[in-house]
Design a protein around this nucleic acid. Structure first.
Lengths: 261, 261
DNA sequence: AGACTAAGTTTCACATAATGGAACCAAACG
DNA sequence: CGTTTGGTTCCATTATGTGAAACTTAGTCT
């Protein structure tokens, strides 16, 4: 994770500072940020002032540390409420969770990455990577592959370039070629499988949520562990998941321009 | 909710545009934003370009609309994970939720407003205002009052100025004086009650999470409805809630500077 | 077709706002 | 009581942002 957005103007730089704070993952001192050597003292200082004043950062005067601010959380809440899929899908996720008793994920794709938009925990919850609001890789997750498989050609090309292809587990498909073959298989099958490709012991069956024009606007998955079930058993639920994905798609489609309150 | 951050430089203005998009609460066209008359065409255009390029907005070329982007969500997720209380409190919220079967809220205070940081639904869930990530008023919610009551004097003064004092229900305390009296009562009692002051039928018992120095760093509440229980019954749980709040406080306190991964 | 309109994009002379080296201040240290 | 470390302010220089206006589509009407 090297040099960031650095490029367009003042705003880009300011956002870069936000990322630095986020990246350190805890309240940070001025000097720690300065030590990154990205911006000169005065410049960095001014950014921190502005961002704090704007509520994007919050400053703890007792400790002299900066952390991410609430305005960010408020904005993200709005983002969630507005990412058409999430509110529509909510009742369907509940339904699917109740029916299967497994972990359910709803994800969307952005810039070649997977964003987990909503989640239901299994009746017996399992610790795993995905959380609502978290961003993850596309090439080695069920939801990611399901969406990649239905991306238009040039969008797919761009997305593939952005994959880091780290070999998380022995099962990870870590070359563009292997992945492309898999995507073709997914298209004929209609659903994607994750055979412990991201985390050992975690398997899933994912289905794309397709717009009328055939673009993937999201994906839905049922996830479990090798300790609890088998891939074949999970795959048996694919039909049901597809039905629900279709319902969500239909509702999303008919929802183009909701009136404002 | 009037004119925003408008004031510090380019960054402030750009963030203002983000708020405009968030405020409309759906994917918006360029012209809609332009119609707000805040920025001239070319200026607005440039901001949208920059923000999109930075991943704070995402642009749908098919419809020509902008909506909030993933980078925002990623940042907000980091904000949540880093706002020390949330991750620490998680297991305790689970515990309290299982024990009481009622709705549990964890909130923090910011700029006189309450931010719901985490939540557990009641075994029989009830629709209500609060959601994790949502911001609400302080003067008429249990968690809000619990935190106000333990604010240092000048911080309280600043917070009070920021209250809108809308009379949501007949029980709402809608004057600073009434509220101050209530805060004194809360301090002697050690917990706050919400007697349907924000939403009719919704009652709650809230407890502040206090730092060693006595500042409120958050609040914890058990919420229910008049249909399900009485205020007295809820209040009976106050002791238990206080214990858990104390545990969270202790853990937060000992957690000052976690090493980075 | 061709004239008209609305929505979005690009240009460019101009002024404002960002820049960062250096000076300054305040604690903490020895 | 000099010195270092961490943070804040100044200010001349110049890069950056600004926004009216010109331009380009893409629709719509006759």
């Amino acid at each position: 994770m090297g040099a960031e957005g650095h490029g367009d103007g003042t705003v880009g730089k300011a956002l870069d500072v936000l990322d630095m704070v986020a990246g350190l993952g805890r309240a940070v001192r001025f000097s720690e940020l300065l030590a990154q050597g990205v911006y000169p003292k005065a410049t960095l200082y001014r950014f921190l002032q502005t961002l704090t004043h704007q509520g994007m950062l919050s400053y703890d005067p007792d400790r002299g540390t900066y952390s991410l601010g609430v305005r960010l959380v408020r904005l993200a809440h709005a983002a969630w409420a507005q990412s058409s899929l999430a509110p529509i899908a909510r009742p369907y996720l509940d339904e699917l969770a109740a029916e299967t008793g497994e972990t359910i994920h709803l994800a969307q794709m952005d810039l070649g990455q997977v964003l987990y938009v909503d989640k239901r925990n299994a009746t017996r919850p399992v610790e795993m990577f995905a959380q609502a609001g978290k961003v993850g890789p596309a090439y080695c997750t069920g939801v990611g592959k399901a969406m990649l498989a239905y991306l238009p050609d040039e969008a797919l090309a761009r997305a593939l370039e952005r994959q880091s292809f780290h070999r998380h587990t022995p099962q990870t498909l870590y070359t563009p070629e292997a992945l492309k073959a898999e995507l073709a298989a997914i298209r004929t099958r209609g659903h994607a499988l994750d055979r412990e490709e991201h985390e050992l012991g975690i398997i899933c069956c994912a289905v794309p949520i397709l717009s009328r024009s055939g673009r993937a606007i999201g994906a839905l998955s049922v996830t479990s562990t090798t300790a609890n079930t088998t891939l074949t058993a999970l795959e048996a639920k694919a039909g049901r998941v597809k039905d629900i994905a279709a319902k969500i798609a239909a509702e999303a489609e008919s929802w183009r321009f909701p009136e404002q309150g």
